[in-house]
Write a protein that binds this DNA or RNA. Structure first.
Lengths: 329, 329
DNA sequence: CAGCAATTTGTAATCGATTACAAAATGATT
DNA sequence: AATCATTTTGTAATCGATTACAAATTGCTG
C-alpha cells in the first residue's frame, strides 16, 4: 500500500499538498489537484487512519459496549445507533463484553488510546467506577441501563411505570395472584420493575408474596423455563406472570405449555422488550415495547454532540404495552 | 493521559528504556525496571495503541464481518472466535454490514489502514471481488459461507449432505410431498441445500415440483410465515417442509399453527442451524445443528496462523440432525 | 515593469511509540 | 589497575499523516 510520500513524488508535489487535496482544503489550484488525484488513483492510495489519527487524535469510530449479542433486544438499538453514526461520518464497532471486567478494560483502553472517539454502553454490569472515571475525560453515553444519581448522560425508559402498567393490566383482567419473574436486582431496571410491580399490587390491595417473586441468574430462555417450573410447584399457584424480559417470558411460556396448562386461560403472561420472537410464539406474547430504534438514534446523537464538546441532557423515552394473545383470556 | 516521554522523564531514563520495560525486553536491570514501573503507576500511564501500531504495523485486532447481528445463528460462532482470539492476545470487533457494500468498504479500509490485522467474514453477500483483492495482501478467512473454487481459506459444513439427510429423514417418515423453503439462490449454501434436497427426492423416486420450492428474500421470521402461506394455498399441499434456516422454519411453524393445521401430524417440519429459540417453539423444532462454537474457534485459529504467515487449509466440519417434536408424527 | 497583495506551495515540526546502533557502565580476569 | 567482554542505557531515525509558518508564485495596479 502506497503512502503519502509516494503519491507526492508521483504527482511532483510535496506531501503537504497531497494532504490538502485529501482534506479538501481550499487553497489548492485546480491543476495541482488534478495531478494529485491522478497519482492517488494510479497508486491505488488510501490514507492510513493510523497516521491521521495519531496526528489528529480522532478516529471517527464509536464503540458500542453490550454484554451479549445473543439478546435480540439490542438488535434494533444498534440499527438506530449505526444509521445515525453513518449519517454523521462515524462508524461503530460492536464490543461484546460478556459482562467481563477484563474485556471491558480492553475496550476502555481503546478509548484512552484514541482508537475510538466515544462509547455507548448498554452493559448494566459494567464496572461503574471505571466507566465514571473514563467519562470524566472521554465522551460516554449510557443506553437503556443507567446510573441513578450518576453523572453520565443516559437514554432510557421509565421502567417502573412500564412495570406498573403491565401488572395493572393483569389485575384488570381479574388476576389476583400475580408472579414476577425478575432478573438479578443488582441491575437498576430489575429494582425499578419490581417497584412498579409492587406499586400496582398495593394500589389494588393485593398482597406481595415473596414466593411469587423469582430471581433468575441470566436472561436466557432456560432461565425462564426454570423459573416457571418453581412457580408451578407452589401450593398456591399464580394465575398470571409478569417477566422482566421477553426471553424469560418465552421460556416461561414454553414451561407452561409443557406442563399441560393453557395460556392465557390458566395463566396469563406478559414479557418486556417486544423482541421479534415475541410475535412468533404460540400464543403470541403480550409485552412492553421499548422504542429501541429511537433509543439508538438518541444515544448516538447525544454521543456525537458530546464529542463535539456540547453538554447533553439525559432523555426518558415513551414505552407501549402491546397486548397480544398471552393475556387475551 | 501521559505519554512515554513523561514517564521517561519522571523515571529519569530515556524513552527507549521505558519502551523496553513495556515490551518486557530482557536487557533492563531490575533497578531501572522498578523505577520505570513506579513512574508508570504514578502517572497512570497506558501506552498509545496508535503510536505503537503505526510503528509496528500491528493492531492485534481482528474484524468479524457479519450481515446482521439479529440472526442468532452467529452468536455461538462469535463466542468461539472471541475466546480463541483472547487466548492469543487478540481482540475482536464485530462489524455489521447489513450486506451493504459501502459499509463493507469501511471495514475493508480498516484492514488496509492497519487498524486491524485480519478479517473473518461471515457475510455471504459480501463483495467477492473486493474481498479476494483484500485477501491477496491481508489475512482473510471465510466462515460458514464460502467461495467455491476461490482462493480464500474457509470453514464450513457440508450443506448438501446435511440437506440430503434432513430430507431423507422426512421421506423415511412416509412423506412423499416435501416442500423446500429456500433463501435466495445467489448464496452458495442455498444452492447446495437445494441440491441435497433434490438428490434425496430423486433417490427415492419422488418428483421435484417447482411449486413446492419457495424462495424467500431474507431470513426473518415473517419470510417464513409468508412462504408457508403460499405453500398452504396450493392445490396439492405438501405434507412436510424443509426450511434452510431455523428462523424461516419458525415463521412457517407459526403460520401452520395459525391455519389450524397440526405439526407434525398434518405437516412435518425441519429447520437448519439449531438456534436456541428452536427448542422453545411449540412443538420443538427438528433441525440440522452446525458446530457453531467449533466453527468460530477454527476460523479464529486459521486467521491467527495466517497472520503469522503460515499457510492454512480449508476445513469442513461435521453436522448433526437433531430430531425433535416437529417431525415426531 | 516595479511594487504589493493574494494565492498557492513547500519545509519541517509534530503526534507516541519502537528499535538499530552507539555509547556508557559494569564485571571479570590477569 | 589495565584490558576486554558483557550488560545496560541513550540517541536518533522511523512509521504516515497534519499543519504552522515561510517561501514562492501569480495577478493586479499605477
Amino acid at each position: 500500500m502506497a503512502n503519502i510520500q509516494q503519491v507526492a513524488e508521483k504527482a511532483g508535489v510535496s506531501v503537504a499538498t497531497v494532504s490538502r487535496v485529501l482534506n479538501h482544503a481550499a487553497s489548492v489550484s485546480t491543476k495541482t489537484r488534478l495531478k494529485v488525484e491522478n497519482a492517488i488513483k494510479e497508486l491505488n492510495y488510501e490514507p492510513s487512519m493510523l497516521g491521521r489519527n495519531l496526528r489528529n487524535s480522532e478516529s471517527r469510530l464509536l464503540l458500542v459496549l453490550l454484554p451479549s449479542i445473543s439478546n435480540p433486544f439490542y438488535t434494533e438499538i444498534i440499527n438506530g445507533i449505526q444509521n445515525t453514526a453513518i449519517a454523521n461520518s462515524y462508524n461503530i464497532l460492536l464490543c461484546e463484553t460478556d459482562s467481563n471486567p477484563q474485556r471491558e478494560n480492553i475496550y476502555f483502553n481503546m478509548i484512552k488510546n484514541k482508537l475510538a472517539d466515544g462509547v455507548i454502553s448498554m452493559d448494566p454490569a459494567v464496572n461503574r467506577q471505571k466507566l465514571t472515571e473514563i467519562a470524566e475525560s472521554y465522551p460516554v453515553i449510557l443506553c437503556s441501563e443507567y446510573d441513578e444519581g450518576g453523572s453520565i448522560p443516559f437514554v432510557t425508559i421509565d421502567s417502573e411505570l412500564a412495570a406498573y402498567q403491565a401488572v395493572k393490566h393483569l389485575i384488570r383482567l381479574g388476576n389476583k395472584k400475580i408472579a414476577l419473574i425478575n432478573s438479578d436486582e443488582k441491575f437498576l431496571y430489575a429494582r425499578q420493575r419490581r417497584s412498579g410491580y409492587e406499586r400496582a399490587l398495593k394500589e389494588f390491595g393485593l398482597p406481595i408474596r415473596e414466593e411469587w417473586i423469582f430471581h433468575t441468574k441470566d436472561l436466557e430462555f432456560h432461565n425462564g423455563v426454570q423459573a416457571i417450573r418453581v412457580l408451578l410447584e407452589l401450593e398456591e399457584k399464580p394465575t398470571a406472570v409478569f417477566a422482566v424480559s421477553d426471553t424469560l417470558a418465552i421460556g416461561a411460556l414454553k414451561g407452561i405449555n409443557g406442563s399441560g396448562l393453557h395460556v392465557p386461560n390458566d395463566l396469563a403472561i406478559i414479557g418486556f422488550d417486544n423482541i421479534s420472537f415475541s410475535n412468533m410464539t404460540n400464543p403470541t406474547l403480550t409485552t412492553v415495547s421499548q422504542p429501541m430504534y429511537k433509543m439508538g438514534v438518541t444515544a448516538a446523537n447525544m454521543l456525537i454532540m458530546n464529542i463535539k464538546g456540547e453538554q447533553v441532557e439525559s432523555v426518558v423515552l415513551d414505552h407501549d404495552l402491546i397486548i397480544r394473545e398471552s393475556t387475551m383470556g
